[in-house]
Design a protein around this nucleic acid. Structure first.
Lengths: 222, 222
DNA sequence: TTATAATTCATACGTTCGTTTTAATCATAG
DNA sequence: CTATGATTAAAACGAACGTATGAATTATAA
């Protein structure tokens, strides 16, 4: 009897290998030959199925981000419906944006920790086409969440909210991307906790930090 | 009369070009030919003066980081001397670490904004040798500042402090690295402020955020 | 089974990469 | 001035890069 997935879907295997290798070595640091070798497919398969290395990179992100951002939109829809004409609480907005992201770490079918680390690192990636692609991919969701925060914090200047959103993004990206990137720097902290432990506790640890920063006293530019 | 700096110090010109190009395109994305072309030196000059591309990258960082970390140590020395047997206030510690860094942006002779952006991006760089080098370069200072924070916040578990230090690093790196990286995402915010304006106001904006996060309520891991 | 399309394969193309080599040029001390 | 070492220069190295080609193979449907 023949295997119903004789080569277990070449496209998917390439995407998985690309995801893992781009995470580990970056876009420029990963070659097509590494990818096709790890995926156990022919070298030409990437160009056949995706057209180019750039398009593969974009597809690696689209596969995960579309679902994530749909979920973010849906959660905010629900929160705003429940709140009626009240503003949604900032803590709920922050959890809807960053919590949905962080909880992907547990879901291996959505890339798990590998994709999270890739995303965290890529937000500072220098390559122009990646930044442009991610900016486009994120635009709608970001605008929506900024508006929600504007309503939730009417006494805070909008420019300030945007900056703090930016800071929160940075803290979150490092928290996930740097889980081993800065291990040498932070070093001893690992002793007490194994990898899964750290992941379990990342959300409850990061969320108070983000909210504390978001609600900190305003600067006075003296 | 002969120019006293006939070629205006080849080494320095290479370091400047490397700094700018590594910032703009990343380590893997920058070629030796780009560097030597921008520095207006012969292709072989990098290998002659630095040995390899990797060593050049390390020297680009060492040139700036040695002074920065010396300054961080000196400032903390002074703060602890002034505090006597009291603990140094957390806000002063945070400013001594992150403020010292951020104020380099104004000092063109220490790399200015270019080096800051390079540093911010490189902390998530996937290349193994870079992470290892930075970890080593930072170890002493990080340990010292962690100890200071432990003393300043005796009621907070040490593991929690390390995590929040990590979060602060992330927020700061993004704040500087992403000044144009995430411009498309944050988009409209630029309208009201020009580039120098944003830089002037970054420190007073970021510092309250970091302190708010550092002093946020502790998680309960329910 | 046979025609047709989709996919996989081995192989090669032209470029660019970091590095090395050997010779030319420069600065400096005797 | 000359000899010695430091630096710059031009050219080439082999390796690896992303991509393209055309044939072989596999799946699909008539």
């Amino acid at each position: 009897m023949a295997d119903p997935h004789p080569q277990a879907d070449t496209r998917e295997r390439i995407l998985d290998a690309g995801e893992r290798l781009f995470m580990a070595h970056g876009y420029e640091g990963t070659s097509m030959r590494q990818i096709t070798s790890e995926a156990a497919v022919n070298l030409a398969a990437v160009n056949y199925h995706f057209g180019s290395k750039e398009s593969l990179m974009q597809e690696v992100f689209r596969r995960r981000l579309d679902g994530l951002n749909d979920e973010r939109m849906a959660v905010l829809d629900r929160l705003e419906a429940e709140a009626g004409d009240q503003a949604v609480k900032p803590s709920l907005i922050v959890d809807a944006f960053f919590g949905t992201l962080l909880r992907m770490a547990d879901d291996e079918s959505r890339g798990g920790m590998t994709f999270l680390r890739l995303l965290g690192r890529t937000l500072t990636e220098p390559s122009e086409f990646i930044r442009a692609f991610l900016a486009h991919e994120y635009k709608t969701v970001m605008d929506r969440y900024k508006e929600a925060l504007f309503r939730a914090l009417p006494e805070v200047p909008k420019a300030e909210i945007v900056w703090r959103f930016h800071f929160m993004l940075g803290a979150t990206s490092y928290a996930i991307a740097g889980t081993d990137a800065l291990r040498l720097v932070t070093d001893w902290q690992i002793e007490a906790e194994d990898s899964t432990d750290r992941l379990d506790r990342l959300v409850p640890r990061l969320m108070p930090f983000l909210l504390g920063g978001l609600r900190a006293p305003l600067p006075n530019f003296e």
